[in-house]
Design a protein around this nucleic acid. Structure first.
Length: 734
RNA sequence: GGCCGCUUAGCUCAGUUGGUUAGAGCGUCCGGUUUACAUCCGGAAGGUCAGAGGUUCGAGUCCUCUAGCGGCCACCA
């Protein structure tokens, strides 16, 4: 045995052995209890960072523990195509070469993204191996795999048949850079310093004016009314009169609507139904015209008037303000701070725009998702997140699932002729419209269109060019990976045991998995949700692939300190739902711990060698009995902590026992009678290695291999490999 | 505006159902290398557990309030 533990010299070999022996691949065995974790598929838009190492540390710990407990354990790995994110990242790469996706065209772009993600996937999988993840590679999945896609399409079909998805003109958040609609969750709001402009709208009859306040003066070009609160005494008698819209000279009515807060601004609100979510509702309620003055490209449209058409929104704003000022309509300007929405992935300011999109009717799905948690069929750890979960689901709005992206699952929807496409879709996808008949526009859902339209007899169908929100497919991950509805894995492993992921995607992912899982399988997708915290760097910033410069590469760390050290550093002194700070000093400390274990083992090993491995049971001394008592207590402690998801505590207990009680005290005491103490030393060691294995799989297995070669079948070295050895029983020492 | 969390040794953080002198890692100080490990060992200093009040035989742990920090959610123009 070397004087120092050298992780780089053993980790690769051990991992290979484990994999070759098939320890990661469970056999479906009716006599065994199944235990399954579906790995949160990392986004294949880059490589893994230290943040991912945390999920590996936690999930692999649970998995290895359950495997040792004798369950049929499946940890299913995968990767996510990550629709919009990958498209944004890949388009950035293209931009560096001065290209856009349109230069490639849809097919080539998709292929290039596919190649890009496959490359990333392989890199990520090798990183997972380096971290020691004992997942079943024979079952690895990608979100765009054929069999996964089929299930995603089937789910959409069922939702459609039951009226739980619909297509409608709605106001959605639109990212002008990505040129796609977004869901509410994909918009991040940032406080921005802006201004509140007070603009006078004169009455048509020349008798006075009404002043409105707005943060977005450029949208006034699309105003079709001014609204006041019906109770507002200042304006009550004026309701119904006509106003003349400055710059545009359009006559617009003064209407009364409850939505107006008389306390804010002047108590009078300009109504732009096409460009503000509230105004959209008011516009519908009062049957106002919708005038779109901002286009999907983020520039003013022809409807904004010759003077403003084609100007980017910001420039249009300045020009409108300038014109208003010049003509005397601008009454006041106040500085004003408010929240502005940005695209989660590319940070561009989003524009609320009306467009034709597909939505999931979420209320009925959410209701059931709330129920299963309330009834305890799914437990969220830590508990406090249940409240957050309920709040979100109880206020949920319909989910826009269509994206005008090229990278992702194309919608399994066919329209009879070109009539089914929106104008926007036609403009964005001229090649699919060219030479096609108009048809009747009837909608068909399925992987293939019918041969003939039953309504109009047309035989030419156009596939909806849009793709699914990436979360629509990952929301089905727990059953789409297992081969729902008839796959053997599905029948055996579903519902899965634990969903381990970060609290940041509780809504994005966990809630959607519960909704879609319940909808499709009529069962909960998992029984426990364990939420880990964010891994932050020394500056307190969370690790994120969108900021690769601040991310620590786990492989570098593994090379330097060993996978075990990194994993233990992430677990030690951490707890569910709380953030973890990556500290190289802590990794170093855990590297030292691994080395400590190695050297204590080395001491025992050398003692055994001195006896030529002929170890005889002897009489136990007082200190022998004490250390065995302490070992016993440690087994209870570690087991209890793992069962209750207190992994940091479990590791601390073990650390305390092994280093301080076993090494510092016991080992020193028996140095003058080590031959006699060998049976106890070996028992403590074999149990300790098993307790340690879920936390530090490599060093524990490496040591185990050294001993089992000589002591097979004795002192707890029963199995050929530690990874499949039984978890120690608490009563062991008694 | 609503909700949630945090505030424990110089630093980074644990502390399950309330129970004896409050813990770890790192750092600091003193001492120690022939004999598993200097990636080590022995010893020490260092905390009125943010503040105030309350419940209790007993509170870092439960309740109320206050302050600072952080996060999430929300259509106030």
């Amino acid at each position: 045995m070397e004087k120092r533990y050298r992780p780089d010299q053993v980790e690769g070999k051990i991992y290979q052995k484990w994999e070759e022996k098939g320890f990661f691949t469970p056999k479906i065995d009716k006599k065994k209890e199944p235990f399954c974790i579906i790995m949160p598929p990392p986004n294949a838009n880059g490589s893994l960072h230290i943040g991912h190492a945390l999920f590996v540390a936690v999930e692999d710990l649970i998995i290895r523990y359950q495997r040792m407990r004798g369950r049929a354990v499946l940890w299913l790995p995968g990767a996510d195509h990550a629709g919009i994110l990958t498209q944004v990242v890949f388009e950035r790469e293209l931009a560096k070469k001065g290209k856009t996706r349109f230069d490639l065209g849809r097919e080539k772009f998709f292929q290039a993204c596919f190649d890009f993600t496959q490359k990333n996937k392989e890199k990520m999988f090798s990183q997972l191996r380096a971290l020691g993840a004992s997942c079943d590679w024979t079952r690895a999945k990608f979100t765009l795999d054929k069999e996964v896609t089929k299930i995603v399409y089937d789910t959409f079909y069922h939702l459609y048949q039951e009226g739980l998805v619909y297509r409608d003109w709605r106001m959605v958040s639109w990212c002008p850079r990505c040129a796609t609609a977004l869901s509410d969750l994909e918009v991040v709001y940032k406080e921005e310093k802006g201004k509140l402009w007070y603009i006078a709208y004169p009455f048509v009859d020349g008798k006075g004016e009404i002043v409105v306040a707005t943060t977005r003066p450029e949208t006034m070009l699309g105003d079709t009314a001014v609204a006041v609160n019906p109770q507002d005494k200042r304006y009550r008698r004026l309701v119904g009169k006509k106003l003349r819209l400055p710059l545009v000279n359009r006559e617009i009515p003064l209407i009364a609507d409850e939505m107006v807060d008389p306390q804010f601004g002047t108590g009078a609100v300009k109504i732009t139904p096409a460009h503000d979510p509230d105004d959209f509702v008011v516009g519908k309620r009062h049957h106002l015209p919708f005038i779109q003055v901002i286009g999907f490209d983020g520039k003013m449209t022809a409807a904004a008037g010759e003077e403003f058409a084609d100007l980017p929104v910001k420039e249009a704003r300045e020009k409108v303000v300038g014109a208003l000022k010049k003509q005397g309509f601008l009454k006041k300007v106040k500085s004003y701070s408010h929240r502005v929405g940005h695209c989660e992935r590319c940070k561009t300011t989003v524009e609320p725009l009306v467009s034709l999109q597909w939505f999931v009717k979420t209320k009925p799905l959410a209701k059931k998702a709330v129920e299963v948690v309330k009834k305890g069929k799914i437990k969220i750890i830590p508990r406090r997140f249940e409240k957050t979960y309920f709040r979100w689901l109880e206020n949920i709005r319909d989910w826009c699932i269509s994206r005008q992206l090229w990278w992702g699952h194309q919608l399994p929807i066919w329209y009879c002729g070109t009539k089914g496409l929106s104008e926007l879709q036609k403009i964005m996808n001229p090649e699919i419209v060219k030479g096609q008949p108009e048809g009747c526009g009837k909608v068909f859902v399925g992987e293939k269109p019918p041969s003939r339209c039953p309504v109009c007899g047309n035989t030419r169908f156009i596939r909806d060019p849009d793709t699914f929100d990436t979360w629509f497919s990952s929301g089905q991950w727990p059953f789409s990976t297992l081969g729902f509805p008839k796959g053997k894995d599905y029948l055996y492993f579903y519902p899965t045991a634990v969903m381990e992921t970060g609290y940041d995607i509780l809504f994005f992912w966990v809630a959607r998995m519960i909704m879609l899982g319940l909808y499709r399988t009529k069962k909960v997708p998992f029984r426990v949700v364990y939420l880990h915290g964010m891994v932050r760097d020394v500056f307190g910033q969370p690790m994120s692939k969108s900021r690769p410069e601040t991310c620590v590469d786990p492989q570098e760390t593994v090379k330097k300190y060993g996978a075990d050290a990194l994993r233990m550093a992430l677990l030690y002194g951490s707890s569910a739902g709380n953030d973890v700070v990556v500290d190289e000093k802590k990794i170093e400390a855990m590297r030292n711990f691994a080395n400590k274990i190695w050297n204590a083992s080395r001491f025992i090993y050398l003692s055994c060698e001195a006896e030529r491995w002929q170890i005889k049971e002897g009489k136990k001394s007082q200190e022998d009995k004490e250390i065995l008592e302490e070992l016993s207590a440690t087994i209870a402690q570690v087991t209890g902590d793992i069962e209750n998801y207190r992994f940091g505590q479990a590791l601390e207990s073990f650390y305390q026992f092994f280093w301080h009680e076993f090494c510092d005290v016991y080992l020193e005491k028996i140095k003058n009678r080590r031959q006699e103490a060998l049976p106890v030393l070996l028992k403590v060691l074999s149990v300790s290695l098993r307790l340690l294995h879920p936390f530090a799989p490599f060093v524990s297995e490496a040591i185990y291999q050294l001993f089992v070669a000589h002591l097979k079948g004795k002192f707890g070295f029963e199995k050929d490999y530690l990874i499949v050895s039984p978890w120690p029983k608490e009563k062991f020492a008694k």
